[in-house]
């Protein structure tokens, strides 16, 4: 099932299916952010484990490719993953 990264619970892992930034609902940020995410290792097929999420629409912290990455909620909402249970 494909869900946004923000809907994963703490400790859950998902595999990235698509990143909806640079077009569609996420057009505002353009390609810069999309490229930055890819450069940081968030490419389709990458496993992401949620470590924690900050309150009040704060960012999430995730485990990606052996390191920890903080991602703003507005971006994380546009990263879609297939949940691995």
């Amino acid at each position: 099932m494909e869900i946004p990264l923000t809907e994963l619970k703490e400790g859950e892992t998902g595999v990235i299916t698509r990143i909806e930034i640079g077009f569609g609902r996420g057009w505002r940020w353009g390609r810069g952010i999309r490229k930055r995410l890819a450069d940081m290792g968030l490419t389709p097929g990458t496993k992401v484990t949620i470590i924690r999420s900050a309150p009040l629409n704060g960012p999430i912290e995730a485990h990606v490719r052996g390191y920890k990455l903080a991602i703003g909620r507005d971006i994380a909402e546009r990263i879609f993953v297939e949940v691995q249970r």
Binding site: A70, I71, D74
Partner: peptide, 12 residues
Amino acid sequence: GEAMALIMEMPD
């Protein structure tokens, strides 16, 4: 303008 969102490595 929209705030650019956060993408930051969290150092140990």
